[in-house]
Computed example of a mutant assay.
Amino acid sequence: MTRYTTADIRVGDDFLAEVACIWEVSARKLGNVHPGAHFRDVTAVEFLLSAAAIRTAFRFPGHSSTGHLIKLAARETRSAVGTNTNLGIVILLAPLVSAITTVAPFRGAVSQALERLTIRDAQLVYEAIRLANPGGLGDAPEQDVRSEPTVTLLEAMKLAADRDMVARQYANGFADVFNFGVPAFTAALARFGCVEAAIIDSQLRWLAKYPDSLIARKRGLAVAEDVQQRAAAVLELGGIATPEGRAAGVALDRHLRSDGNTLNPGTTADLITACLFVALRENMVTPSAPFRWHVSDWL
């Protein structure tokens, strides 16, 4: 009988993508869906089902282009839950799971995956976006998703990079994820000793640094910048490390949920999921790491 050791087993990127999605929705983040807070039309269950759905789509990334992975994941999600729960996540994760690391370190392989994108990838992603039908989509002055693209997916993302943080990651080689988001998460993980607190802390830092794209699309840039200032004020009080910061965070959560969840910082949640995947993929954290943050004065 063949015997295997843990050294013989490599966890697949599809599993790590699912873990990243499960962690993101399970953490009690400000203004987002989690097991203790839902929106009128979606709960944490739909996000968990969506995590399982995209694992199916990402199971054999080497056999499909980035655009095909995104279209397949959007279709699997729509079939599983009937609504858009994860389009931004899928668009961010697809080039990360497509990266071929046999010829380059992970970050270099991601850059190569982006450079390989074609017009066909853009066509497939436009189809995925129309299928998901995300809220607050609006119109684009060039290469609008309701029309047929005439440029590569990377070029289309560069056109949208000034107004959308997901597109910006394609345009800058995921620099915000690698240079800001992953270090923010790992520093918080070392500080708090559990994944949930690290996710919440890094969410505050993302919100304080960048206006959330989804809020900006739905409510305007000025409203997104107001949320940015409120998150910075929470951090100035010590963030989740102090009772004062936690109280301010709870108040910010109430504010974000006060108007029919139109202040949901959904793009920030998507970016955090990408950071979690990178941290898992690069062995900065393991799927079995302690998760729950045990405090009595949080959400």
Results as ranks from 00 to 15, higher is better:
S79Q: 14
V103F: 11
F39W: 02
Q123K: 14
V90W: 09
R116H: 13
L117F: 03
H68F: 14
T102N: 14
V42I: 14
V151P: 03
L124E: 10
F60N: 14
V33A: 07
F58E: 05
A132G: 06
A80R: 08
A52F: 10
P141E: 06
D121R: 08
L131D: 00
F47K: 03
E148R: 12
S50E: 04
E127C: 04
A51G: 11
E46C: 12
P105C: 06
T83M: 13
T118V: 07
E76G: 01
L131C: 05
V145Y: 05
L93D: 04
R59P: 06
V103C: 13
V110N: 09
D41R: 12
S50H: 04
S98L: 15
H34E: 03
D144I: 05
I100Y: 13
R78E: 08
N86C: 03
R75Q: 15
I129R: 06
I70W: 01
F58A: 09
E46V: 11
L48T: 12
L131E: 02
Y126T: 01
T43I: 03
S147E: 15
S111Y: 09
L87F: 02
P149G: 05
R146Y: 13
L69Q: 11
E46H: 13
S64P: 00
V97W: 08
V90G: 01
R78H: 10
D144P: 04
G108H: 02
A99S: 09
